[in-house]
Design a protein around this nucleic acid. Structure first.
Lengths: 238, 238
DNA sequence: AGACGACAAAATGTCGACAGTTTTTGTGTT
DNA sequence: AACACAAAAACTGTCGACATTTTGTCGTCT
């Protein structure tokens, strides 16, 4: 109600920032790809100033890397640090979700439940249309709805940054149609439902466990992606 | 050896960024103070472009806040979220320091020990010259040296951001000469020494405890600052 | 006297152009 | 043909100026 609908007049650089951010998170822009300022300026029909501003902002979040006097590139996905990434995701997911269960208001619980339902719907839509966006986006929304309820702006910010990166990984997995995972939307929703119930009971220990298992699930999905052999049907000797 | 000494030719906006960052963290720029772009441009003898770029970068780190179409201001110190800040500092300090103990190399241990000695020296210098900078700066260096040894770039980044804010709080405390704390440099060094020993033993559980106590010490110092009555010698009836 | 509205001043947002590097291209030599 | 060096193209870093938005002031009207 007290929320502005959305169509607020955005400044040029803000539009570029928002668009590029979305493109990067959805892997529409490949990691490592060079982002030419003049090219982007033409694409958005703007001068280079707002483009630069957007790129600097994105660099602050680690989504792009500015190579001094060279082109800025979309941040590559760092496989070397992947174990550390997953560790940190686990830690902050446990922290945010536990605190959320312990500090939530009824209004926040309702929002979380709504986000859960939206995820189930989005996940089914993704299967039906073979488009990963709704599944991943609504999953992100669900966990961020929980994180917001923890009321710790620092944890929310850090966890959000990790989830952004997780989004990229999720889309990467789907791009290769690695449907090896036989988890249905209903399976994932069952986990989410358990989480919501734990939050409803204010059961911190329980949701910390669930968050840990959920993080491990993500870890496993990522492992599947790496281990999957996409060329096994191709005979080397023919 | 493979490290460039330092006098690399810095770009204009990088110099502005570095200088402003230092000024903000040392509280030479007061929280809430407006940062006028044209004024800064004159001060640094540069155009507004590099100034803007520096401000956008600082905004990404949360050190300044850009109010759209209005002036950017130095981020105010948020007392409302202080408990959450201290909680998060505790959590990430425990995590980084424990992992550091478990994963450190001998070279990193040596660096940590060197940082401890530098802190003791700096802390004494601060008492002697009544200048908080060496004490706080070397304390920051000590804990960051430990954090770097944890080898988790995500935790290092997040913890570093929290320590930046802690730096501001430390300087704020000293600005009011709130010498109520009767902790000598030697007292603090004793705690640091225990930490180094625990890291040397690779004793994760022990250093997690020490890190927790150390964070609580900071919490207490901050409480002292808030509770201290700086006007008690002023009689209301005279 | 207080409120509303137009005007003026100042700051931010954007633009096009120039300067300094880096990368690419092209040429000549070994 | 391969390498070294030099010219050129392309891109980033910076600048000064213009456009737009906001803030502050003044005057008028009720």
């Amino acid at each position: 109600m007290a929320e502005t609908p959305k169509p607020e007049k955005l400044t040029g650089s803000a539009k570029v920032y928002k668009q590029l951010r979305e493109d990067i998170l959805r892997m529409d822009l490949a990691p490592g790809q060079a982002l030419d300022e003049v090219g982007l300026a033409e694409r958005f029909s703007l001068s280079r100033s707002p483009i630069r501003e957007a790129l600097v902002k994105l660099a602050g979040e680690g989504l792009v890397q500015v190579l001094p006097n060279r082109s800025t590139i979309v941040s590559p996905i760092n496989f070397q640090d992947m174990p550390r990434f997953l560790d940190t995701l686990d830690l902050l997911q446990r922290a945010t979700h536990r605190l959320a269960a312990e500090n939530r208001t009824d209004a926040e619980l309702a929002e979380i439940e709504a986000a859960r339902e939206a995820f189930l719907e989005g996940s089914r839509l993704s299967i039906a249309t073979n488009n990963s966006v709704p599944h991943i986006e609504r999953n992100y929304d669900f966990h961020m709805a929980i994180a917001r309820a923890c009321r710790n702006p620092y944890l929310i910010r850090f966890y959000g940054q990790l989830l952004d990166e997780a989004k990229r990984l999720g889309h990467m997995r789907f791009q290769f149609k690695s449907q090896t995972t036989n988890l249905t939307p209903e399976d994932l929703d069952a986990q989410h439902k358990q989480m919501v119930e734990a939050i409803a009971r204010r059961d911190g220990a329980s949701i910390e466990n669930l968050a840990h298992e959920h993080a491990n699930l993500f870890r496993g999905q990522f492992m599947d992606y790496v281990m999957a052999n996409h060329t096994q049907r191709v005979a080397v000797e023919y």
